Amino acid sequence: MDIDTRLLRYFTAVAEEGHLTRAAERLFISQPALTKQIRQLEAQLGAELFSRSRNGMTLTEAGTALAAAVPPVLAAWDTALRTTRSAAVRAARVLRVGFVASAANEMTQRIIAEFARRRPGWRVRMLQTGWEDPTAGLAGGEADVALLRLPFPGQDELGVEVLLTEDRWLALPATHRLADRELIDFREVFDEPFVATPDASGWWRDYWLAADERDGHPVTVGAVANTPDEWLNAIANGFGISLTPEATARFYQRPDVVYRPVRGVSHSQVGVVWPREGDVPDVVHDFVRSAVTVSRAVSQE
C-alpha cells in the first residue's frame, strides 16, 4: 500500500497539536480540508486514528502506533528529498527565491545583482505565491530561499536574517471618511470591516488584522483576498480597509486606493529566510550573505 507523505505530515500535525484548528493553522490549510485528509488516511489504512470530541483529537491505539512509526519515515524521506533537490539546484544553476508580494522592496534587485557577482553563471528565479502560504513555497520545498514578511507561522524552525523594518500603514478606498487624514489612530477603525488573508495563512492573518492590538475589540472581516490584485479590488470597492507595509504605497498605486500612516500598531519586517536543517546548498548561503550585505549597505546610505 502506498501512502502519500503529505497525509502522514497532516496526521503528525494533528497528533502533536491534539486539535484540528491548531493543526490546520500550522499546516496553512483550512480545517475542513484537513478533516478530509485525515479521513482519507483512515480509509486507506482501514483504522480509526483519532477519537474525536469537543475537547479535541485523541489518538486511538492504532493512531498511537502510527504516531511512533511515522517520524523516522518522514525524516528519511526529507533527507532524500533535500539531497535530490540540492543536486538539482547545483546542476541547473538556478536558485528559486520565493516571495509573497513586494519581496525585499527596492533592495530586491540589488540583492539579485550582488548574488550574481558572488555566483557568476547562476540565475535567480523569483517565485511568487498567494497569501495562503506566508512562507512563499519554502515550507513545501518549492523555493530554496525566500524574501518574506515577518513574523510568519513556522518562522522559529527556519533560518532568518532581518533585512529591514518599516511601519504598517492603512489602505483605504479613496472615498473613505478618513482618506484625507495625514495620520490615523488605529482605534478609529476598530469597528471597520477589514480585508483579510485566507484562513489557511494561520495566525499570519491575525497579525495583519492586528487582532492582538485592538484592546479586545473583535475583528470584522469584510472580504478575503488571496493575492494583491484581489486585495486592491476589495479595498477599492469598499468591502474593507487593510493594514499593509509602508512599501505598498510605492509598489501598488492606483487612483481609487489611498495609503495613510497609522498610529497604534507594531512595525513590520522583511527577512531573508532559508531551511536551517539538512543539506542546504552553499549557493543558498551565498544568497543570504548577498541579502545581508545589501541590507547593511542600504542602512548606511
Rank of each mutant, 00 (worst) to 15 (best):
R26V: 00
A33M: 12
L34T: 02
K36V: 06
I38S: 00
Q40C: 00
E42G: 04
L45T: 08
G46H: 12
A47K: 15
L49Y: 09
F50K: 03
F50P: 03
R52A: 11
R52E: 10
S53K: 09
R54M: 05
L59H: 02
E61D: 12
A67S: 11
A67Q: 10
A68F: 01
V70T: 04
V70C: 07
L74F: 11
A75N: 09
D78Y: 08
D78S: 11
R82E: 13
R82P: 03
T84D: 14
R85W: 09
S86T: 13
A88R: 14
R93N: 14
V94P: 07
L95R: 04
A104K: 06
N105G: 13
M107I: 02
T108N: 01
Q109V: 01
Q109T: 05
R110G: 03
R110A: 13
I111F: 08
I112K: 12
F115L: 04
R118H: 01
P120C: 11
W122Y: 14
V124A: 05
R125A: 14
L127I: 09
L127K: 01
W131H: 09
E132Y: 11
E132M: 02
D133N: 14
G137L: 01
G141D: 09
D144C: 08
D144S: 07
V145I: 07
V145Y: 02
L147D: 01
L147N: 01
